[in-house]
Computed example of a mutant assay.
Amino acid sequence: MDIGKFETELRDLMGSPYYDRPFVCDGSPLDCQVFIVGINAASSMTEDFWDFWRSGYGFDKSAWYSAYQAIRAKPSRTRTVMQIVMDEAVATNSDVRFLETNIYSFPTPRENILRSHQMSTKIFDFLLETIKPKVMLVHGAKPNKYLREYGHGDARVIESPHFIYLSHERAREHGREIARVVQ
């Protein structure tokens, strides 16, 4: 699949505008060998997902991150740990590309306040089926349970406690492990 077809299928699936957060990456999601998977995003944003999409390129993570910083005084503990994982993996293997995603794309401060209609996995399932990551770092009991029950293709799954409970050293270990698997 090329980036144009991916965009068309994603737009058909999500619609436009789309104010939830289906994923974050830098450039084409199709180039991402690694998914970092949680249950759902904690922070809502007022921007449309498609404001950060560039046809023929993919997702503009730096523009998204600027908008994210505008609504958060500082990055969440989850985002901080996620960045440590990614930085360590890239320092070990500069070819590693990440896609940050969640089982549910609807953001809420806590997963337990999601309504049933907000608990759709169709976008996550599309990403998994279309991109076929080599590795998935899955943080939290519920996303790990989901992947055990519904499958993960041929991806190697690294199960982790939720990132809010993960030490920075353990995050670096995950990054090094991901870099080794992707080589």
Score class of each variant (00 low, 15 high):
residue 56 G to V: 01
residue 76 S to I: 00
residue 130 T to A: 08
residue 25 C to V: 00
residue 128 L to T: 03
residue 65 Y to E: 13
residue 98 F to C: 04
residue 31 D to I: 00
residue 119 M to C: 09
residue 23 F to D: 07
residue 23 F to N: 06
residue 142 K to R: 15
residue 22 P to G: 10
residue 94 S to N: 13
residue 18 Y to T: 07
residue 110 R to E: 12
residue 87 D to V: 00
residue 34 V to G: 06
residue 2 D to I: 00
residue 136 M to P: 09
residue 119 M to T: 05
residue 122 K to Y: 11
residue 12 D to V: 00
residue 1 M to R: 14
residue 21 R to K: 09
residue 31 D to K: 03
residue 96 V to L: 04
residue 53 W to I: 00
residue 29 P to H: 08
residue 72 R to W: 03
residue 34 V to N: 07
residue 13 L to Q: 15
residue 168 H to E: 15
residue 108 T to H: 07
residue 112 N to W: 13
residue 82 M to T: 14
residue 115 R to T: 06
residue 176 R to C: 13
residue 43 S to A: 02
residue 162 H to C: 08
residue 38 G to S: 12
residue 131 I to F: 06
residue 113 I to L: 01
residue 84 I to H: 12
residue 109 P to R: 04
residue 44 S to T: 06
residue 61 K to E: 10
residue 79 R to H: 12
residue 20 D to A: 10
residue 150 Y to G: 04
residue 178 I to N: 06
residue 56 G to R: 03
residue 178 I to A: 03
residue 66 S to L: 08
residue 88 E to W: 02
residue 171 A to C: 11
residue 32 C to Y: 02
residue 44 S to W: 06
residue 30 L to V: 01
residue 27 G to M: 00
residue 110 R to F: 07
residue 105 S to C: 14
residue 71 I to A: 11
residue 72 R to S: 04
residue 10 L to F: 14
residue 106 F to L: 02
